Computed example of a mutant assay.
Amino acid sequence: MAVLRTLGTIVVAAATTWFTMWALGLALPFLAEPAVLLVVLVVVAVQALIAGILASYDLGRVGHWLILVVDHTWSLLNTVFGGIVGNLIYPFVGRPSRADSAGRTWIVYMPRSTSGFGTDVLQTVGIVNLGGAGQHERMHLLQSRAFGPTYLPLFAVFYVVTALLAILFAPLGALLKAAHRRDTWYLRPPAKSAVQGFFGWIYYATPFELWAYASGNP
C-alpha cells in the first residue's frame, strides 16, 4: 500500500507537471526546452517521492487528489520553489517527520535543536515546512495554493514596499529617538512577530504575514 501510494504520488505529480510545463511552453517557449523540463521534473519527482514516503497526500480521499493536482498545476511555481529551497536547506536543520506530514498535504521537517531556526522561527515554502503545523504556517500553505503563480511575486513586491517604508521612516525615527519620543529609530513589530529588529517590521507588515498572524498561532 505504501509503495502504491508513493508511486501514485510520483506519477500524478510528474504527469500534471509535464502538462503544465507544456501548456506554459506554448506562451513561453523556453519552459518547454528539454533541459528546463528535465530539471523541473526531477525536482518534482524527488519531492513527490518524499511526500509519498511521508504519506503527505491521502490518495484515498478525493480532496487530496485535487490538492495534489493543484500543487502541480496552478501552484507549480510555489511547489518547485519549495522543492528546491526547502528540501535542500531544511535537512541541514531538521528531519522529515511522518507524524507531522501524513495526511496534511505538505512535507514537514522538525528541527533537531530546541531553539533557533525551525523552533523559534517557523517557515513554509511551497508545500515544504520547517517547524511543524500551526494555523499561521498552514495559512501560508493555503495562500500559496490560492494565489498560485502570483504568490511569490506578490511576496517580493510586499517586501520591497515595506522595506522602502522602513527606510523612509528611519530619518524621522532617528530624530524622534534623539528627542526621547521613541526608544528605537526603526519601525518595530509587535512582540508576537517571529522576527524582531529593523527587519522585523519589514517582515511582519507584509499583507500575507498580517493575514497569517491574524489567523492564529505559528
Rank of each mutant, 00 (worst) to 15 (best):
M1D: 09
M1L: 09
M1C: 07
A2W: 11
A2N: 15
L4V: 14
R5K: 12
L7R: 00
L7I: 09
L7F: 10
T9E: 03
V12W: 05
T16F: 15
F19L: 13
W22N: 04
A23I: 06
L24Q: 04
G25R: 06
P29G: 04
P29R: 10
P29F: 02
A35Y: 07
V36W: 01
V36I: 12
V36H: 02
V36M: 07
V40N: 01
V40Y: 01
V42G: 02
V43C: 03
V43L: 11
I50C: 03
S56N: 00
Y57P: 00
D58T: 03
D58K: 03
D58F: 03
G60H: 11
R61C: 06
R61N: 11
V62Y: 09
I67D: 05
V69P: 00
V70P: 00
W74Q: 05
S75K: 02
L76R: 07
L76N: 05
N78T: 14
T79H: 07
T79W: 07
T79S: 08
V80T: 10
G83I: 11
G86W: 01
G86A: 04
I89T: 14
I89H: 07
V93L: 14
V93F: 13
V93A: 08
G94Y: 06
P96M: 10
P96G: 04
P96A: 13
R104G: 00
T105N: 04
T105F: 02
V108E: 02
V108T: 14
Y109K: 09
Y109V: 05
M110N: 03
P111G: 10
F117Y: 14
G118A: 12
T119E: 11
L122R: 12
Q123S: 14
V125K: 02
V128D: 02
G131C: 07
G131L: 04
G132I: 04
Q135Y: 12
H136Q: 09
E137Y: 11
R138L: 15
H140P: 06
L141N: 03
L142R: 13
Q143H: 15
S144A: 14
S144T: 12
F147Q: 08
Y151P: 05
Y151F: 15
L152E: 05
F155C: 13
V157I: 15
V157S: 13
F158Q: 13
V161A: 08
T162E: 13
A163E: 06
A163N: 08
A163F: 09
L165R: 12
A166F: 05
F169E: 12
K177E: 15
K177D: 07
A178Y: 12
A179Y: 08
H180Y: 14
H180D: 15
R181F: 08
W185K: 08
Y186C: 06
R188M: 14
A191H: 11
A191V: 09
K192Q: 14
S193K: 04
S193P: 02
V195P: 06
G197M: 12
F199D: 06
F199R: 10
G200I: 06
Y203K: 02
T206H: 03
T206E: 06
F208R: 08
L210R: 15
A212G: 05
N217H: 14
N217F: 09
